[in-house]
Simulated scan of single mutants.
Amino acid sequence: MHLHETPVLEAIRERRSIRRFTNEPVTREELAAILEAGRWAPSGLNNQPWRFLVIARDDPRREKLAGCTKYARIVRASAACVCVFLEKASMYSEMKDHQGAGACIQNMLLAAHALGLGAVWLGQIVNDQPAALSALGLSESEFELQAVIALGHPDQKGDSTRKPLSELMLEDY
Rank of each mutant, 00 (worst) to 15 (best):
M1G: 15
E5P: 01
E5T: 12
E5R: 12
V8F: 13
L9Y: 10
I12D: 02
I12L: 15
R16W: 04
R16G: 03
S17Y: 00
I18R: 05
R19H: 13
R19G: 03
R19Y: 06
R20W: 09
R20A: 12
F21W: 00
N23A: 15
E24Y: 03
E24T: 14
P25E: 08
V26C: 05
E30S: 14
A33Y: 02
I34N: 02
A37M: 06
G38A: 04
L45C: 09
N47R: 15
N47W: 00
Q48V: 06
L53P: 01
A56Q: 13
A56M: 12
R57H: 13
R57W: 01
R57K: 15
R57C: 06
D58V: 05
D59E: 05
R61P: 10
R62K: 13
K64I: 01
K64L: 14
K64F: 11
A66I: 11
G67H: 04
T69D: 07
T69A: 02
R76Q: 15
R76S: 12
A77P: 04
S78R: 02
A79Q: 03
V84F: 09
F85H: 06
E87Y: 00
K88A: 02
S93C: 14
E94F: 07
D97G: 11
D97Q: 08
D97N: 12
H98E: 12
H98D: 11
A103T: 00
Q106F: 04
M108K: 10
L109E: 03
A111I: 05
A111H: 07
L115M: 08
L115N: 08
G116F: 04
L117V: 04
V120F: 02
V120G: 00
V120T: 15
Q124R: 05
V126Y: 00
N127L: 14
N127K: 13
D128Y: 07
D128E: 11
A132M: 04
L136F: 07
L136P: 07
L136D: 11
G137L: 05
S141M: 06
S141N: 15
E142K: 13
F143Q: 04
F143D: 02
E144R: 12
L145V: 03
V148K: 02
V148M: 06
I149C: 03
I149V: 13
I149Y: 00
A150E: 06
L151A: 02
G152K: 03
H153F: 02
P154V: 11
D155I: 01
Q156M: 12
K157T: 13
D159W: 12
D159F: 12
S160C: 07
T161D: 01
R162P: 00
K163C: 01
P164K: 14
M169E: 14
M169S: 09
E171Y: 13
E171N: 10
